[in-house]
Amino acid sequence: MSGKHSTASGALAFYSQLDDFETWKHALLAQLPGLDIRHSSALGDPADIHYALVWKPPAGFFDGMLKLRLIVNLGAGVDSLVNRADLPPGIPITRLTDPQMARMMAGYVLFAALRHARDIPHFEQAQRQGKWSYRHPRSPDEIRIAVLGLGQLGAVAATELSRLGHAVSGWSRSPKKIDGVHCHAGLATLDTVIANADILIVMLPLTPETRGILNRERLLRLPRGAAFINVARGALVDQAALTELLASGHIGTATLDVFEQEPLPATDPLWRMPNVLITPHLASVAIPSSAARQIASNILRVSAGQAPENLIDPGKAY
Protein backbone atom coordinates (compact mmCIF):
# COMPACT_ATOMS: atom_id res chain seq x y z
CA MET A 1 0.00 0.00 0.00
CA SER A 2 1.51 3.33 -0.99
CA GLY A 3 1.13 6.22 1.43
CA LYS A 4 2.17 8.95 -0.99
CA HIS A 5 -1.43 9.85 -1.80
CA SER A 6 -2.91 8.99 1.60
CA THR A 7 -2.95 10.65 4.99
CA ALA A 8 -2.73 9.46 8.56
CA SER A 9 -4.14 11.35 11.54
CA GLY A 10 -2.10 11.90 14.68
CA ALA A 11 1.62 11.96 15.38
CA LEU A 12 4.22 9.20 15.49
CA ALA A 13 6.63 8.92 18.43
CA PHE A 14 10.12 7.53 17.77
CA TYR A 15 12.36 5.98 20.41
CA SER A 16 15.59 4.05 19.93
CA GLN A 17 19.05 4.45 21.36
CA LEU A 18 20.55 2.49 18.46
CA ASP A 19 18.75 3.76 15.36
CA ASP A 20 19.21 7.10 13.63
CA PHE A 21 16.09 9.25 13.92
CA GLU A 22 16.75 11.39 10.85
CA THR A 23 17.24 8.33 8.63
CA TRP A 24 13.98 6.79 9.79
CA LYS A 25 12.14 10.12 9.53
CA HIS A 26 13.32 10.59 5.93
CA ALA A 27 12.29 7.04 4.99
CA LEU A 28 8.84 7.36 6.58
CA LEU A 29 8.17 10.78 5.04
CA ALA A 30 8.95 9.32 1.63
CA GLN A 31 5.95 7.04 2.19
CA LEU A 32 3.71 9.36 4.22
CA PRO A 33 4.74 12.96 3.43
CA GLY A 34 2.28 14.52 5.85
CA LEU A 35 3.09 12.38 8.88
CA ASP A 36 4.00 14.25 12.07
CA ILE A 37 7.08 12.38 13.32
CA ARG A 38 8.47 13.30 16.74
CA HIS A 39 11.63 12.20 18.49
CA SER A 40 11.21 10.96 22.07
CA SER A 41 13.15 13.98 23.33
CA ALA A 42 10.58 16.37 21.83
CA LEU A 43 7.21 14.60 21.98
CA GLY A 44 5.14 17.56 23.11
CA ASP A 45 1.67 16.57 24.26
CA PRO A 46 1.58 12.75 24.57
CA ALA A 47 -2.12 12.88 23.75
CA ASP A 48 -1.13 13.80 20.17
CA ILE A 49 0.58 10.44 19.68
CA HIS A 50 -1.35 7.85 17.65
CA TYR A 51 1.58 5.66 16.59
CA ALA A 52 4.90 4.62 18.13
CA LEU A 53 8.00 3.30 16.38
CA VAL A 54 10.24 2.03 19.15
CA TRP A 55 13.08 -0.20 20.27
CA LYS A 56 13.16 -1.02 24.00
CA PRO A 57 11.42 2.14 25.25
CA PRO A 58 11.94 2.91 28.96
CA ALA A 59 9.30 2.34 31.62
CA GLY A 60 6.63 5.02 31.52
CA PHE A 61 7.31 5.92 27.88
CA PHE A 62 3.67 5.41 26.87
CA ASP A 63 2.16 7.30 29.83
CA GLY A 64 -0.34 9.86 28.65
CA MET A 65 -0.60 8.49 25.11
CA LEU A 66 -4.36 8.17 25.42
CA LYS A 67 -4.95 8.04 21.65
CA LEU A 68 -2.28 5.45 20.92
CA ARG A 69 -3.51 3.11 18.18
CA LEU A 70 -0.42 1.22 16.99
CA ILE A 71 3.05 0.25 18.21
CA VAL A 72 5.67 -0.83 15.68
CA ASN A 73 8.68 -2.63 17.12
CA LEU A 74 12.02 -1.79 15.50
CA GLY A 75 13.13 -5.38 15.23
CA ALA A 76 11.99 -8.97 15.54
CA GLY A 77 12.12 -9.46 19.33
CA VAL A 78 9.18 -7.86 21.13
CA ASP A 79 9.85 -9.00 24.70
CA SER A 80 10.35 -5.39 25.88
CA LEU A 81 6.78 -4.50 24.84
CA VAL A 82 4.77 -7.10 26.74
CA ASN A 83 3.48 -7.00 30.32
CA ARG A 84 4.13 -3.26 30.66
CA ALA A 85 2.36 -1.12 33.26
CA ASP A 86 2.29 1.93 30.96
CA LEU A 87 0.36 0.19 28.15
CA PRO A 88 -3.40 -0.37 28.30
CA PRO A 89 -4.55 -3.73 26.97
CA GLY A 90 -5.59 -4.03 23.37
CA ILE A 91 -3.04 -1.74 21.74
CA PRO A 92 -1.90 -3.63 18.61
CA ILE A 93 1.82 -4.35 18.48
CA THR A 94 3.45 -5.28 15.19
CA ARG A 95 6.90 -6.56 14.37
CA LEU A 96 8.90 -5.77 11.28
CA THR A 97 8.97 -8.60 8.76
CA ASP A 98 11.13 -6.85 6.20
CA PRO A 99 12.69 -9.56 4.00
CA GLN A 100 15.98 -7.69 4.20
CA MET A 101 16.09 -8.49 7.94
CA ALA A 102 15.71 -12.21 7.24
CA ARG A 103 18.46 -12.05 4.60
CA MET A 104 20.73 -10.13 6.94
CA MET A 105 20.16 -12.63 9.77
CA ALA A 106 20.68 -15.59 7.44
CA GLY A 107 23.92 -14.06 6.23
CA TYR A 108 25.23 -13.63 9.77
CA VAL A 109 24.20 -17.15 10.78
CA LEU A 110 25.79 -18.63 7.65
CA PHE A 111 29.01 -16.74 8.38
CA ALA A 112 29.07 -17.91 12.00
CA ALA A 113 28.14 -21.53 11.23
CA LEU A 114 30.61 -21.85 8.35
CA ARG A 115 33.33 -20.25 10.45
CA HIS A 116 32.93 -23.08 12.93
CA ALA A 117 32.30 -25.77 10.31
CA ARG A 118 35.56 -24.91 8.55
CA ASP A 119 37.51 -24.65 11.85
CA ILE A 120 38.39 -21.01 11.20
CA PRO A 121 38.86 -20.22 14.94
CA HIS A 122 41.64 -22.86 14.98
CA PHE A 123 43.38 -21.20 12.05
CA GLU A 124 42.95 -17.74 13.58
CA GLN A 125 44.73 -18.87 16.72
CA ALA A 126 47.43 -20.64 14.67
CA GLN A 127 48.02 -17.43 12.72
CA ARG A 128 48.49 -15.44 15.92
CA GLN A 129 51.13 -18.01 16.96
CA GLY A 130 52.82 -18.03 13.54
CA LYS A 131 52.00 -21.72 13.02
CA TRP A 132 51.12 -23.54 9.79
CA SER A 133 48.55 -25.83 11.42
CA TYR A 134 46.71 -27.90 8.82
CA ARG A 135 43.31 -29.40 9.52
CA HIS A 136 41.58 -31.39 6.84
CA PRO A 137 38.12 -29.93 6.05
CA ARG A 138 35.14 -32.01 7.04
CA SER A 139 32.38 -32.91 4.61
CA PRO A 140 29.34 -30.66 5.15
CA ASP A 141 27.00 -33.61 5.64
CA GLU A 142 29.14 -34.80 8.56
CA ILE A 143 28.51 -31.59 10.51
CA ARG A 144 25.25 -31.64 12.45
CA ILE A 145 23.69 -28.23 12.88
CA ALA A 146 20.68 -27.53 15.10
CA VAL A 147 18.63 -24.33 14.91
CA LEU A 148 16.53 -23.57 17.99
CA GLY A 149 13.63 -21.37 16.89
CA LEU A 150 11.96 -21.77 13.51
CA GLY A 151 10.14 -18.48 13.16
CA GLN A 152 10.56 -16.26 10.12
CA LEU A 153 14.27 -15.66 10.70
CA GLY A 154 15.12 -19.14 11.97
CA ALA A 155 13.36 -20.90 9.11
CA VAL A 156 15.30 -18.92 6.50
CA ALA A 157 18.62 -19.58 8.24
CA ALA A 158 17.91 -23.32 8.60
CA THR A 159 16.92 -23.57 4.94
CA GLU A 160 20.10 -21.86 3.77
CA LEU A 161 22.29 -24.13 5.91
CA SER A 162 20.51 -27.17 4.51
CA ARG A 163 21.16 -25.96 0.96
CA LEU A 164 24.89 -26.04 1.72
CA GLY A 165 24.64 -29.77 2.40
CA HIS A 166 24.71 -29.76 6.20
CA ALA A 167 22.60 -32.12 8.29
CA VAL A 168 20.21 -29.54 9.77
CA SER A 169 17.75 -30.10 12.59
CA GLY A 170 15.30 -27.51 13.82
CA TRP A 171 13.43 -27.17 17.10
CA SER A 172 10.40 -25.09 17.98
CA ARG A 173 7.66 -25.12 20.57
CA SER A 174 4.99 -25.95 17.98
CA PRO A 175 5.36 -28.29 14.98
CA LYS A 176 6.88 -26.85 11.80
CA LYS A 177 7.65 -28.31 8.39
CA ILE A 178 10.63 -27.02 6.40
CA ASP A 179 12.05 -28.74 3.33
CA GLY A 180 15.49 -30.17 4.01
CA VAL A 181 15.27 -29.62 7.77
CA HIS A 182 14.51 -32.33 10.34
CA CYS A 183 11.97 -30.49 12.48
CA HIS A 184 11.28 -31.32 16.12
CA ALA A 185 8.75 -29.74 18.47
CA GLY A 186 8.02 -29.59 22.19
CA LEU A 187 10.21 -29.62 25.29
CA ALA A 188 10.32 -33.42 25.30
CA THR A 189 12.53 -33.36 22.18
CA LEU A 190 14.79 -30.41 23.05
CA ASP A 191 17.49 -32.31 24.95
CA THR A 192 17.89 -34.84 22.14
CA VAL A 193 18.23 -32.09 19.53
CA ILE A 194 20.94 -30.39 21.61
CA ALA A 195 22.79 -33.65 22.25
CA ASN A 196 23.09 -34.25 18.51
CA ALA A 197 24.38 -30.82 17.50
CA ASP A 198 27.96 -30.13 16.49
CA ILE A 199 26.86 -26.52 16.01
CA LEU A 200 23.96 -25.13 18.05
CA ILE A 201 22.32 -21.92 16.79
CA VAL A 202 19.93 -20.09 19.13
CA MET A 203 17.17 -18.11 17.37
CA LEU A 204 14.35 -18.42 19.89
CA PRO A 205 12.07 -15.58 20.99
CA LEU A 206 12.41 -14.53 24.63
CA THR A 207 9.23 -15.46 26.49
CA PRO A 208 8.47 -16.50 30.07
CA GLU A 209 8.72 -20.10 28.86
CA THR A 210 12.07 -19.71 27.07
CA ARG A 211 13.87 -17.47 29.58
CA GLY A 212 16.84 -19.47 30.87
CA ILE A 213 15.90 -22.47 28.72
CA LEU A 214 19.57 -23.16 27.95
CA ASN A 215 20.70 -23.79 31.49
CA ARG A 216 23.87 -25.53 32.57
CA GLU A 217 22.30 -28.98 32.38
CA ARG A 218 21.20 -28.47 28.78
CA LEU A 219 24.50 -26.89 27.73
CA LEU A 220 26.28 -29.95 29.11
CA ARG A 221 24.28 -32.11 26.71
CA LEU A 222 26.19 -30.63 23.79
CA PRO A 223 28.90 -32.94 22.44
CA ARG A 224 32.31 -31.98 23.78
CA GLY A 225 33.91 -29.37 21.52
CA ALA A 226 30.62 -28.25 19.96
CA ALA A 227 30.16 -24.69 18.71
CA PHE A 228 27.56 -22.35 20.17
CA ILE A 229 25.96 -19.43 18.31
CA ASN A 230 23.45 -17.04 19.90
CA VAL A 231 21.73 -14.39 17.76
CA ALA A 232 18.49 -14.24 19.76
CA ARG A 233 18.54 -12.96 23.37
CA GLY A 234 21.12 -13.28 26.12
CA ALA A 235 18.50 -14.13 28.75
CA LEU A 236 17.79 -17.45 27.02
CA VAL A 237 21.15 -18.75 28.25
CA ASP A 238 22.86 -19.21 31.61
CA GLN A 239 25.79 -16.98 30.68
CA ALA A 240 27.90 -17.95 33.69
CA ALA A 241 27.55 -21.63 32.82
CA LEU A 242 28.30 -20.91 29.16
CA THR A 243 31.47 -19.04 30.15
CA GLU A 244 32.59 -21.89 32.40
CA LEU A 245 31.99 -24.52 29.72
CA LEU A 246 33.88 -22.45 27.16
CA ALA A 247 36.81 -22.17 29.57
CA SER A 248 36.83 -25.93 30.20
CA GLY A 249 36.63 -26.79 26.50
CA HIS A 250 33.33 -28.64 26.78
CA ILE A 251 31.99 -26.00 24.41
CA GLY A 252 34.77 -25.51 21.89
CA THR A 253 33.93 -22.15 20.35
CA ALA A 254 31.18 -19.56 20.44
CA THR A 255 29.88 -16.67 18.36
CA LEU A 256 27.81 -14.38 20.57
CA ASP A 257 25.77 -11.41 19.34
CA VAL A 258 23.58 -11.05 22.45
CA PHE A 259 24.18 -11.08 26.19
CA GLU A 260 22.43 -10.96 29.56
CA GLN A 261 23.58 -7.35 29.94
CA GLU A 262 24.12 -5.09 26.96
CA PRO A 263 26.54 -3.53 26.36
CA LEU A 264 28.60 -6.43 27.67
CA PRO A 265 30.62 -5.03 30.61
CA ALA A 266 34.31 -4.49 29.88
CA THR A 267 35.17 -6.67 32.88
CA ASP A 268 33.26 -9.71 31.59
CA PRO A 269 35.60 -12.69 31.02
CA LEU A 270 34.00 -13.46 27.65
CA TRP A 271 35.91 -10.53 26.14
CA ARG A 272 39.24 -12.19 26.84
CA MET A 273 38.43 -15.74 25.75
CA PRO A 274 40.31 -16.72 22.56
CA ASN A 275 37.57 -19.16 21.53
CA VAL A 276 34.79 -16.53 21.59
CA LEU A 277 33.80 -14.04 18.88
CA ILE A 278 31.71 -11.12 20.16
CA THR A 279 29.56 -8.76 18.08
CA PRO A 280 27.38 -5.96 19.52
CA HIS A 281 23.81 -7.16 18.78
CA LEU A 282 23.87 -6.49 15.05
CA ALA A 283 23.10 -9.85 13.44
CA SER A 284 19.92 -8.41 11.94
CA VAL A 285 18.65 -4.84 12.01
CA ALA A 286 15.79 -3.06 10.30
CA ILE A 287 16.68 -1.19 7.10
CA PRO A 288 14.68 2.07 7.01
CA SER A 289 14.46 2.36 3.23
CA SER A 290 12.71 -0.99 2.86
CA ALA A 291 10.95 -1.35 6.24
CA ALA A 292 9.28 2.08 5.97
CA ARG A 293 6.87 0.75 3.34
CA GLN A 294 5.57 -1.89 5.73
CA ILE A 295 5.26 0.61 8.58
CA ALA A 296 3.41 3.12 6.40
CA SER A 297 1.02 0.43 5.22
CA ASN A 298 0.11 -0.50 8.79
CA ILE A 299 -0.32 3.14 9.81
CA LEU A 300 -2.75 3.64 6.93
CA ARG A 301 -4.59 0.43 7.78
CA VAL A 302 -5.09 1.55 11.37
CA SER A 303 -6.12 5.05 10.27
CA ALA A 304 -8.77 3.44 8.06
CA GLY A 305 -10.09 1.33 10.94
CA GLN A 306 -8.51 -1.89 9.70
CA ALA A 307 -6.37 -4.35 11.65
CA PRO A 308 -2.62 -4.03 11.06
CA GLU A 309 -0.57 -6.86 9.62
CA ASN A 310 2.23 -8.79 11.37
CA LEU A 311 0.59 -8.59 14.77
CA ILE A 312 2.30 -10.21 17.72
CA ASP A 313 0.47 -12.19 20.40
CA PRO A 314 1.20 -10.46 23.75
CA GLY A 315 0.37 -13.70 25.56
CA LYS A 316 3.16 -15.52 23.72
CA ALA A 317 5.50 -12.49 23.44
CA TYR A 318 6.09 -13.20 19.73
Rank of each mutant, 00 (worst) to 15 (best):
E260S: 11
G44S: 13
F123A: 15
M101N: 01
V147F: 10
A317K: 14
I299T: 12
V156E: 15
P175L: 13
A76I: 04
N83W: 03
Q127V: 11
R224H: 03
V109E: 04
I229Y: 06
V78L: 08
G234I: 01
Y108G: 06
V156N: 07
L110Q: 12
A266C: 01
P137V: 14
P274E: 09
P88N: 06
R224D: 05
L18V: 10
G249K: 12
G154A: 09
F111N: 02
A235F: 00
R163W: 03
L74R: 13
S9L: 11
G151R: 04
A247K: 14
F123I: 04
D20R: 11
G249F: 04
I71W: 14
G186T: 12
I143W: 08
V276K: 00
S162G: 15
R293W: 04
P308D: 10
P89N: 11
H136P: 00
N196P: 07
P88Y: 10
P175A: 14
E244P: 00
K4T: 09
L300Q: 11
I278P: 06
Q100F: 09
D45F: 13
Q239S: 01
S169L: 06
S139V: 07
L190G: 14
L264F: 02
I229P: 02
I120K: 00
M104K: 13
E22K: 05
L114I: 15
N298Q: 02
T94K: 06
S303T: 09
A296S: 09
Q294E: 14
L70D: 09
V147N: 07
G3C: 03
L161E: 02
L74P: 12
D98L: 03
P46R: 06
A235M: 07
S80C: 11
F62T: 04
L164P: 01
L43M: 13
R293F: 04
L222K: 05
L114A: 09
D19L: 10
N298Y: 03
R221W: 00
I71G: 10
H184C: 15
A185F: 14
A247Y: 07
S16R: 08
T7R: 01
L53P: 08
S169N: 10
N215L: 03
H122S: 07
A307Y: 06
M1S: 04
A286L: 07
P223E: 00
Q31C: 13
I312R: 06
A254I: 15
K56C: 09
V181Q: 10
P265Y: 02
P280W: 06
L87N: 07
G107A: 05
R163C: 07
I194R: 08
N196L: 11
R135M: 11
S2C: 00
S290Y: 02
Q152C: 04
F111D: 02
S174L: 04
H281I: 00
K25N: 05
N310R: 13
